[in-house]
Amino acid sequence: MSVLPEIPHTLADYGWDSAFAEDFSLHHCHRTTDLIPGRIIRVDRGRCDVVISTRRSTSSDTSTAPVTVVPADIAPVHTSDPMEWACTGDWVALDPPSANTLATVRALLPRRTAMVRSTSSKRSEGQVLAANVDHVVVAVCLATQPDLGRLERFLALAWESGAQPLVVLTKADLATDAEYVRADTEAAAPGVQVLVVSSETGEGIDVLSAVLAGSTSVLIGRSGAGKSTLANTLLGQEVQEVNHTRDSDGKGRHTTVARDLLPLPFGGVLIDTPGLRGVGLWDAESGLQQVFSEIEELAQECRFHDCAHNREPGCAVLNAVEDGALTVRRLESYRKLLRENAWIASRTDARLRAERLRHWKMIHKSVRDSGVTRRR
């Protein structure tokens, strides 16, 4: 269970600024009762923990007052779309708590960024993992051979979110070929900074802290990647429980069970997440274009504008593979993720069409039941 470090913080330390204040004022001015702003730091089965200012005011000086954490109910949302449900990192407008009632979240402020994956349900829905994030930190363990395909998948989600991706190669103290792995990682992550760190020795922690200072960051990766240990190192205390990985395959057990937003001692906040075994793409076309930017650039030189980079003559992508400028693994990963993203998009469109058809069927049925007949 995570606890809030006992460090004085204000709402501004959690990311509150004039733009969020303006968004909040639009909700507040249309209410007859006072609302207060806050940021969700944890969600658990219809309830959440929200950090709020101790000064009950909607003026701009709210951000300078100390903060406290209060439990809150999430008001019923009249939608079945998980994309519109409250999540960790959301800024909200809520009824303040009283002596006899919990605070109640009434509205979500517009999200600047949202990291979304597809759910495991058969409805082809998106699930927001974290909101209003500036950096997506992808943790990759150096103690085992990195899965570059999985990394590319994480990076596609990160780019699509609107945040800046950052790859952190953890457990450098256990690696003998860290620079070799770093070179492979940089090749799979064009345009992304790659840092090698060790929570044990402190290597690279100062650089990582400087990058994350003053921003909202979410830490993602598979179980055993060293996320909880890295989070504790950045936070300066044992906040997250840590378990050891298995020697046989380097996999770890889930020690983080919820997404917690925690303030960093050097400024900014960090969202730690449970290990992600499976991460489905969700409408990540632009994210894939960023991850595979060199292939997208090569495709501009193909003879045919709709080249599938398979057997077409004059394909610049296939020529790059033959010349050794592009690896086969990279091209196969590109094809695989494009197919998956297209499949998710087609299922989503089909679901929306089905829901629209069901909606009109309900309207027609209600008209028939009411005895109303159409004019001929």
Rank of each mutant, 00 (worst) to 15 (best):
L11V: 07
A12L: 08
D17C: 07
S25V: 03
H28D: 15
P37Y: 02
D44L: 10
R45A: 11
P71H: 10
P71C: 01
H78F: 11
T79V: 05
L94P: 04
S98H: 08
L109M: 07
R112D: 06
V116A: 12
S124Y: 14
E125T: 12
A130G: 02
A131K: 07
V136C: 11
V140T: 13
C141R: 11
R150K: 15
L157F: 01
D184M: 12
L195N: 02
S198K: 05
E203K: 13
L212H: 07
G214H: 07
S217R: 07
S217I: 02
I220L: 14
K227Y: 03
A231D: 11
D249P: 01
P263L: 06
P265E: 09
P265Q: 07
F266K: 05
V269G: 00
I271F: 02
L276C: 03
V279L: 15
A284D: 07
S286A: 10
L288A: 08
Q300P: 02
C302E: 08
F304Q: 06
H305R: 14
P313T: 03
G314S: 06
G314C: 03
A325H: 10
N341I: 01
W343D: 14
A345N: 13
T348H: 15
E355I: 10
R358V: 04
H364R: 14
D369Y: 00
R374A: 07
